[in-house]
């Protein structure tokens, strides 16, 4: 038996306090890329009681994703947007979810990302990351952007940190650990970076803009 929306909201208020929870509930975020970063960011924000999430990814769940991404065996082959929405509804049944199952490009970015408070860059490919960051900063001067670079490999998690690059642009990661020259992505280190991104989003919503 799933609790009512009122009970859910009361439980969140009990945890976060009424002021903070009001800010979270009123907010929206877009998550661009639903891999190791994006799926974990989405879960953290959903559990924290953010009001609306827009999930963007063109890809389907692959067996090689399951070592770090928040999908299940029976979801292999499903679109990541639909699979993640399914999982999020089990954790946060009253979250408002919007799905965009297409590739984000320079040309469609302004339409796909319109109407959110914060954008999370959670792509895998460095050129796609740069395209999104430049596009958001150029086309959405009033939106906050939380991006990531450098979280691959078995290095210490202590080098992953959050930097504030400009007034509205935050960058998480160690800045250097590339999938191209490490063993690849390992779940907890990616989760550390995703946690930096998710918590930075919540801090922005709370009006805490320093890092």
């Amino acid at each position: 038996m799933i609790p009512s929306q009122k009970e859910w909201q009361e439980a969140l208020i009990q945890r976060h306090g009424p002021d903070l929870q009001e800010r979270f509930s009123a907010a929206s975020a877009a998550i661009c890329g639903l891999g190791g970063l994006g799926s974990n960011i989405a879960i953290a924000l959903a559990r924290a009681g953010i009001g609306r999430l827009r999930l963007l990814d063109f890809d389907r769940v692959d067996i090689t994703n399951l070592h770090r991404q928040q999908y299940k065996a029976h979801q292999i082959g499903q679109y990541k947007t639909e699979a993640l929405a399914e999982n999020l509804r089990e954790m946060a049944p009253y979250l408002s979810i919007e799905l965009v199952t297409e590739r984000i490009t320079e040309d469609n970015l302004s339409a796909l990302l319109d109407g959110v408070d914060v954008v999370c860059e959670a792509f895998d490919d460095p050129e796609a990351k740069a395209m999104l960051v430049n596009g958001v900063l150029e086309q959405f001067p009033s939106v906050y952007l939380v991006a990531a670079s450098g979280m691959a490999g078995m290095g210490t998690p202590n080098t992953i940190r959050t930097r504030k690059i400009t007034k509205r642009f935050y960058l998480c990661g160690d800045g250097t650990s590339d999938t191209a020259n490490t063993i690849g992505l390992v779940a907890p280190r990616v989760m550390v970076c995703a946690a930096h991104q998710a918590h930075t989003v919540l801090r922005i919503l709370a009006g805490e803009f320093d890092v």
Binding site: G33, G35, G36, L37, G38, A122, F123, D124, D125, P126, E127, K129, A130, V133, A147, A148, S149, G150, M151, A152, I165, T166, L171, G175, T176, S177, D178, T179, A180, G184, L185, V190
Partner: peptide, 10 residues
Amino acid sequence: LEIVSFVGGG
């Protein structure tokens, strides 16, 4: 000048 250079992984 701040140059942010992205590496792969996500």
